[in-house]
Design a protein around this nucleic acid. Structure first.
Length: 189
DNA sequence: CAGTGGATGCTCT
DNA sequence: GAGCATCCACTGT
């Protein structure tokens, strides 16, 4: 299935299928290893109370980038999903950096690759994205989505940093990945 | 290595 | 005027 087709499915079908895809913006990016699902009937979702100036993009077509400011400081990025009448999105929470590591290092101001893309604010900064990219078409350059060779194994957990619907297991993480925002620490020693 | 708190700005009540 | 879909520095082990 193509990326464009995938995102028209609901978030809970699209999320597991999108884990393992490589996201590149201007040739910089990596494999998606962590996503969180948000949908209209979900009290934690920005789309829960209907469209507002900020959430326009969530109510628009699937396959676009929804960028919002978090805690006044960081930008966070989502992939809009679902059929036309459903304001759904997947929050990009972590990538495994594979392309343009040097560019990420400059943008993040750090040397530790583990901290490049392990968190929604971090990965948005590493990819060079901000509020100006809200609404960006993800099916066209400079954005590229490359499919994985095999479907990723994944697990679900409660979402992070929210205060409503805190127990819903709508965080999708590639099993065994050490690149997630709550990555499993190295075993032993 | 775990826990805490500050920064900071916009959205919605 | 409150409340954030966060990150980082700093503390005390």
């Amino acid at each position: 299935m193509t990326f464009a087709e995938l995102v028209t499915r609901g978030v809970h079908e699209a999320a597991p299928a999108l884990l393992g895809w490589t996201l590149l913006v201007d040739g910089v990016g990596g494999r998606i290893v962590e996503l969180e699902a948000y949908a209209p009937e979900d009290p934690a979702s920005h789309s829960f109370r209907g469209p507002t100036a900020r959430t326009q993009t969530m109510f628009g077509p699937a396959g676009r980038l929804y960028v919002y400011r978090s805690y006044g400081i960081h930008w966070c990025s989502n992939i809009t999903c679902g059929p036309p009448d459903r304001a759904e999105a997947l929050l990009l929470r972590a990538l495994e950096p594979t392309h343009g590591l040097e560019r990420m290092r400059e943008r993040r101001g750090l040397d530790d690759a583990r901290l490049f893309c392990s968190g929604p604010g971090r990965l948005t900064q590493a990819l060079g994205l901000d509020g100006r990219h809200d609404g960006l078409d993800l099916t066209a350059p400079p954005v590229m989505f490359l499919p994985p060779t095999a479907a990723a194994e994944f697990e679900t957990t409660p979402r992070i940093g929210i205060t409503k619907a805190v127990d819903e297991p709508w965080r999708y993480v590639e099993r065994g990945s050490s690149w997630s925002s709550r990555g499993q620490r190295r075993a032993g020693s």
